[in-house]
């Protein structure tokens, strides 16, 4: 709307100009708009329509409410907010994220130092570093999104979630890092060893998921937030397994390591769909 003549006679443009009254356009254009309305009848009619619409919208009925009763119900609920979970929920979001990251770091570091993989001396250092870094980044991002406060309206980044779930699968699909250590090979008990790894990873994921559930402020499990938590837990479990398990066979990595996050996500989806 640079000059009045640009919208005179065009309903589409006139509507745009009229919308300036509700700040759709730059308010500095209002004097210009008023000058135009004084001389242009079609636009003046539209202006009257919009004013009516505005009044009608504001005139919509308000519900009859017993505010005192509602307030009392909320006050009762607030008074019941006590205990460990309530305290954790009331922490600020940076503090809640820090708590979840601390637990994740404890799981990973304790595994890495307490029960390091036996083949570290022959495992390619660049490959180990790049895999650990990629999982770490994906873990950080999913933890941040998992504890997103409800006062943040940004959409859930499905790309982060997909990356978090797919990274372990991609790593598992790579050719074996090496076959130079006896512990890297599975000679027997494939299923038992794979199941043990899955259980180990799932334990770490469950610990992260449990704490996240305590830190989450919702009164129920929301699917999007829940999926993010499951993915974060899966990544932590994977990272711990990466630092602990010396087996390099792709099938073992796929079934015993990469499936941890996916199984948690699938389990959550199934549980929530049954609850409906």
């Amino acid at each position: 709307m640079t000059t009045p003549s640009t919208y005179a006679g065009s309903e589409e443009d006139a509507l745009s100009c009229l919308a300036a009254r509700s700040h759709i356009l730059d308010p500095s254009t209002l004097p210009e708009l008023d000058a135009h309305l004084a001389t242009c009848e079609p636009c003046a009619v539209l202006a009257a329509d919009h004013a009516l619409l505005g009044h009608a919208l504001n005139d919509l009925p308000q519900p009859k409410l017993d505010l005192q009763k509602m307030a009392a119900t909320v006050q009762d609920q607030l008074q019941q907010e006590s205990g460990v979970r309530s305290t954790l929920q009331r922490w600020s979001t940076p503090k809640r994220i820090a708590a979840l990251l601390t637990l994740s770091a404890v799981i990973v570091v304790a595994t890495g130092f307490g029960a390091p993989r036996a083949d570290l001396s022959v495992y390619p250092a660049e490959r180990m570093a790049s895999m650990a870094l990629a999982l770490l980044m994906a873990g950080l991002l999913t933890v941040f999104r998992a504890l997103r406060p409800l006062s943040d309206s940004r959409a859930t980044p499905w790309l982060i979630l997909a990356t978090g779930l797919l990274l372990p699968v991609i790593f598992a699909g790579l050719p074996a890092a090496h076959l130079d250590h006896p512990d890297a090979l599975i000679h027997d008990n494939f299923l038992a060893k794979t199941a043990t790894c899955f259980a180990f990873g799932a334990l770490g994921a469950a610990a992260v998921g449990k704490l996240a559930h305590f830190l989450d402020r919702r009164s129920f499990i929301d699917l999007q937030a829940g999926i993010m938590v499951a993915a974060a837990g899966g990544i932590v479990g994977n990272l711990a397994l990466q630092l602990h398990c010396p087996i390099t066979a792709p099938l073992h990595l796929l079934l015993g390591h990469a499936t941890v996050g996916s199984v948690f996500v699938l389990g959550l989806i199934l549980a929530l769909s049954r609850r409906k």
């Binding site: 609920q77 607030l78 309530s86 009331r90 979001t93 006062s151 402020r217």
Partner: peptide
């Protein structure tokens, strides 16, 4: 949902 909003605002007060 209205009551949940206030409950949630209470929990998130330290974020405000």
């Amino acid at each position: 949902l209205v009551q949940d909003t206030f409950l949630h605002a209470h929990r998130a007060a330290n974020d405000f």
